[in-house]
Amino acid sequence: MKSLLLAVAVMFLTFGFRDQNETITVKGSDTMVILAQRWAEVYMSKHPEVSIQVTGGGSGTGIAALINGTTDICDASRPMKKSEREKLKQRFNTLGVEIKSAKDGLALYVNEANPVQELTLAQIKDIYTGKATNWKAFGGPDAKIILYSRENNSGTYVYFKDNVLEGEDFSAAAQNMPGTAAVVNAVAKDKFGVGYGGAAYGKGIKFLKVKQDASSKAYEPTAESVKSGDYPITRFLFMYTRSKPTGALKEYIDWIISNEGQDIVTKVGYFPVK
């Protein structure tokens, strides 16, 4: 049996150490996909020897890819869950490395024709849990509120549910859109629509001002309000790697959190972490 064991071991080692792919793959958050693509384009133009492939699919999809070993970097618009870290521990014996790559004000979108200007967090919760269903209650027209939301593999969906709805379920009337661009597009065409998503996507729609409660000042998601924390729905945008990054991966991540990488964050419409 020893010769058989040796033969199989040699076969394993031959397979096991075949050439590894040098390309950096990035997968995850749709909120971050434009930013991630811009980072990759600029970095590759300056480092032609590096190839970076960026795809979206949602934070949940990206984290799953990190766990099953099919991406090097996972972009996520929410922190990894405990259960996801457990899976990473099971497969790779690591907790994963979290890198804060940008800040985002999670914006509330309404149609430009909608006269409503601001909402409190409690009002947003009432709207999205289905307790408030008419714009009239918020100074708008006597019309039904049309809710646009995201799929549950979206980090934005999870963040919004955990932090704005305080864990409560979305109204059954909410229409789940495949990406932030689809939410913006739907709201831009729907006079009575409301949606939520990254501040960088706010083209063709109007941002609602958001305030902590009725007695607070309302803020739009601007660089100042997000940086100061005055805007009530502020979150980090994360990148995750399985292990402490080394080599080309480390150089790329270091560049992203450098001033040059953070300038791109601002240009795309998000806010730098520093």
Partner: peptide, 12 residues
């Protein structure tokens, strides 16, 4: 016990 060994990878 889980620990991420630099370069090599995680061990438990």
């Amino acid at each position: 016990v889980y620990y991420d060994l630099p370069v090599i990878g995680g061990f438990s």
